[in-house]
Structures are given as structure tokens and as C-alpha cells.
Design a protein around this nucleic acid. Sequence first.
DNA 1: TTTAACCTATGATAATTGTCATGTTTTAGT
DNA 2: ACTAAAACATGACAATTATCATAGGTTAAA
Lengths: 225, 225
Amino acid sequence: MSKCEQCIIKQFNSLKSLGKDDLIRISGCKTSRFVSKGEVIFSEGESINGIYCIKDGVCKLSKLSSNGKDQIVKLVVRGDLIGQRSLVSEEKSNLTAIALNNMEVCFIPKNEVLFDLSKNPKFSFDMLQEMAKELRVSDNVIVDMAQKSVKQRLADVLIYLHENFEKDEMGFLKVVLSREDYANLVGTATESAIRILSQFKKSGLISTTGKHVKVEDLDGLRRIE
Amino acid sequence: MSKCEQCIIKQFNSLKSLGKDDLIRISGCKTSRFVSKGEVIFSEGESINGIYCIKDGVCKLSKLSSNGKDQIVKLVVRGDLIGQRSLVSEEKSNLTAIALNNMEVCFIPKNEVLFDLSKNPKFSFDMLQEMAKELRVSDNVIVDMAQKSVKQRLADVLIYLHENFEKDEMGFLKVVLSREDYANLVGTATESAIRILSQFKKSGLISTTGKHVKVEDLDGLRRIE
DNA sequence: TTTAACCTATGATAATTGTCATGTTTTAGT
DNA sequence: ACTAAAACATGACAATTATCATAGGTTAAA
């Protein structure tokens, strides 16, 4: 099994603030796991008892709303940590994590992380910074959900995917989302998402082949209102 | 000026995790200030350079959306801290804080807080916990904004106010929000908020006298869908 | 290879929400 | 108490979005 102290992934998250000794200690406790597409990593209401470091792949974090629909709250990619919130607040997970790709994830037990949080102010501060950033993003999402139209939100999602996710040689997004996933990202009915995507395709803003999507006209998407 | 080490307000926030010495040190640097209703405490885009501890009163944290409307992201009450996020992330504020009451707030300069964060793991951890809680709440808000109807969201706001804010002898909420504030809390047009509030009043779910609102039928509001 | 399950697509229609217009009431300042 | 400004209220209508129905297309397992 590969070693945390040599893992390049940690550059992208708070684990970079740990010293070599701590990383070696964590490396001895961590478990690594492959998760296949569609598999549930953890569910709403479960105790997670540790944090996951995403070594490869993409997953969606979603929450079931009272009307029975799933809302995708965040997409999590290579380098991200998940589970810190539940770890710190000692509560069960409020989100469900489902793989959108085949993934590789490392699991670090709760106590190891809590130990470092109690001993290493640099690590704590880094984690605090990450959470502060997440909160800022959340605020923006709240405002967008409350104030933008479904069409705008869907355009935003496409822009976000285009700017932050890997693409193949043809420029198609490597992440493959169902129309239902798109709907659950923007908080609308699946049919509405399908309709708007069709419309974007007709307007030449995107192209699609099956579930594969390519952004063709970024500025055009930006101009949607 | 009153002293932090004797202030009971700190029980409600992370400052409770500081030792007496640190509180005395902070007390020497802090400034106290009265803010009258409607006054802006800080604006989106400003550098805050410290945190505010709300000693008394209520304020709204809002953000201007791209369509020019304000979205209220959070209501902040006695005991809450504001400004931690910008402090930790070294960024300008992404929110505007406006008093809804006459308020009294204490301002603690950035460096004092950063000093404690670097020296006091208990304080850091407490702050981390607070942020984790805020993130959880944000997730819930995102889901609600995305999935619930305007009517449901407005009912939720009324329930939230009823359960978390002070009421007078008659049961009316002491906080007085304009219809526009209600609209900006739920993310809808002012006219829509007005209409729905009128409807709630007609149905006996709430009663209103001018801007003063009283929840009459909590379960009724909970049943709104 | 067939079949069933699921996803995508689209029309028709209803429900929700926003916008504009207009009048009334309340509030704050003199 | 008076007046101007702001906030509230409501109707009429338009735009957006959800829901229901139906059908074609894809995919994966038997």
C-alpha cells in the first residue's frame, strides 16, 4: 500500500500541513479502497468515524430533501477531503456520497485526525481555512439557488464542470452525469433539465453524444439569463 | 468599558474556550460600539480585520446577487460571532451586515484572534466545530432553496423565527422585518412574500399588526407544502 | 439476441412565481 | 399634526417551472 508521506495528493488538502512523522503515523492506520461507479461510500445518517481522502475519481455529495428528491450539494474530486465536518462536530453524516467514476479513496480513522488537530495548530488552521472557503462557496450557492433561474443555474453548472473537470481529447467532459444528476445539481425536475440541455444543444452552446457533454460556447453560457 | 473575562455573552461562542489571561489580553484591545437599527456594520468587499461579538441585538448578513437583489444568508443574534471566515481566509468580506435592531457589538482585532488560534488548540477546535455546524446548516439551506416552494420556505422562516427569537408578552416577535426582508430571506419577489403572508394571515397561521408578526399556528405552518 | 429496465425526449397542461401597475397605509421628520 | 417618502397591498398578466403522459432509445442481463 502506498505511503501518505510520499503521496502527492495531500498537496491539495489540509494534510499537507502535517509533518513527516505524523504522516507516517497516519499512513500506518489508513486504509485504501477502490470504489466503483455508482457505489455508495457513505450514507446520510451514518457515523463516518474518519475522513476520506480522494485519491482518484469523482463523487457526488447529496442530501434527501423532505419532498423525496435528492439534492446534490457538492461534487468532490481528486485531492478533496470528505467527512471533516462530521468528524469535528461529532455528528452523523448529513450527506450521502456516491461515486460517479471508479474511484480510489483512503480512509483515515477519526482518532488520528483528532490527535493531529489537538497537537498541530498549523493543521488546525489549515482545516479552518478550508472550511471558511467552503462556507463562502456555500453562501454563493445559496444566493444562486435563491435568485437565479433554472436555466442560469444549469449554465453555471456546465461552466463549472468545464472549468474544473477533466476533458478528453475531443473536449468532452470525462465525468458522465445523468440528466437526473444535472437536475439534482440545479434543483429542478429531470424533464426541465433535459429540456434546457436540449435547448443549449440546439443553440450550439454545448454538444452531447448520449450522456457525454462538451461545452462549445463558454461565453454564450455566461450570457444566459 | 466592560471586560471580556466577565462577559456572559462569550458562553455562546468560541471565546468561551479561551483562558482568563487571553480574555484579559483581548479585553484590552477590543472596542465596543452601539449600532442603531438600519446601520451597516460592514459591507461586501470590505476588509474586516477582526471579528465582531454580538452583545445585543440582531443583524442580517446579506449578499448582492448578480441580478441586483439582496439575498439574506443568515440572521445573527446575541452571542454570535461574525467575521471569522474572512479572518481565517484572509479575504474580504463576501457579506454585508446590517442591524435590524439597535445593537451593541464588540470588535476584536484580527491579530489577537490569530494569536489565540496559533497558541490555543482548544480555541481552534471550538471554532472548527462552529464552522462545521454552520456548514451543515448551509447544506440544509441549499437543499431547501433548491427543492421547496416559496410558500414552504416562508413558512420555514416563520417557524425558525418563532423558535429562535424573542417574543413580547403578546407573543409577537420582537424582531421586526420588512416584507422585503422576508422576501430576501426566502429568495422571492417582495410582492410574492406579501401575498403569501396575507394568505397565512387569512388562514389564521399568523397574525400581523403592521410589521409585527406573531405565529399563531405552528403546526399549521409545518403542514404547509 | 431478446427482453426488461431504465434513461432520454417531447408535448400538453397546470401550477407557481415574477413583473408591472396602481392605490392604500404606515412611518419618519418637521 | 402635516407631509413626503417609504412600505404594504392587490389585481392583471406574463414567464417560468412542474407534472403527467407517452414514446423512442440504450443498456445490461438472461
